[in-house]
Design a protein around this nucleic acid. Sequence first.
DNA 1: CATTTTAATGCAATTATGTTGCAAATATAA
DNA 2: TTATATTTGCAACATAATTGCATTAAAATG
Lengths: 145, 145
Amino acid sequence: MEDNTARFEKLLVKNGLKRTAPRLQVLEILSGRDSATSQPYLEQVMGKDADRVTLYRVLQAFEEKGIIHKVLDQQGTANYAICSDGCSAHEHHDEHVHFNCDNCHKIYCLDTVKIPALKVPAGFKVNHLNLIATGLCASCADKVN
Amino acid sequence: MEDNTARFEKLLVKNGLKRTAPRLQVLEILSGRDSATSQPYLEQVMGKDADRVTLYRVLQAFEEKGIIHKVLDQQGTANYAICSDGCSAHEHHDEHVHFNCDNCHKIYCLDTVKIPALKVPAGFKVNHLNLIATGLCASCADKVN
DNA sequence: CATTTTAATGCAATTATGTTGCAAATATAA
DNA sequence: TTATATTTGCAACATAATTGCATTAAAATG
């Protein structure tokens, strides 16, 4: 478990990215959470450890390499989660459902839920599907009772 | 066709909103388009006819009343489309698929395509589904050939 | 039709969010 | 250890969105 750092270093090298403090920190934070993490939250947690601009660039680099994927919540805020193994710079495989809790505002990657195939009007060519469900997550639904 | 204005005035009154120039103008613009309209586009078209702030407030009021609905595109930009008749202040019925063209960036409301039901993990309570498909719209797919 | 009331607008100021160019610092290769 | 290529941090800028408040305009009232 504490070998996280070693694992992250490998991940960076594999993607041709240098092993730098801000990058390791972002991976550390994201991996320690059970839901997608918003850009503002990351910014807050990293505090003065890294410049705002650096954070943007780290996230952008990670997304391009397929290390993380971005989900926009209902407000249009960017949230990031570490990709499952299938992803690469060439192609993301994040066609799973995202669940945005109305109460705690967490965004969960429901990796097990596949997006159903879709019939679109003639002529349209679908490339990518993006499904966000909103409602109450298991933990919040519980509390309401 | 030119009775649009009368129709819009009714719509406003029905929702307890005063008949003002900026509101009528927004309805006019939105109704004249075949796809959802971005906030920046509206702002540009309205020009100095209305203050930016007024536009924000008009859109917000319309959304609350169920007159229009908001769709975020892949960049998180707000786009607006007039709701079909089923909508009201109490509840939006915009659970149709939105199609975001990678080429022309238009957002189409595919009213005829219903979002399929979804199986989520135990405990999660789904309230709302939001599906955005990306790819090429009929007109752009055509041009590519 | 004049007046009162209420809602909506426009403006100024502020905050949040995201981007660019460039010099300095740092990681890796040589 | 030095060279090189990348990454960072800073400053400046650009864009998007929000708030408070005085003014204006719409509808309700008498």
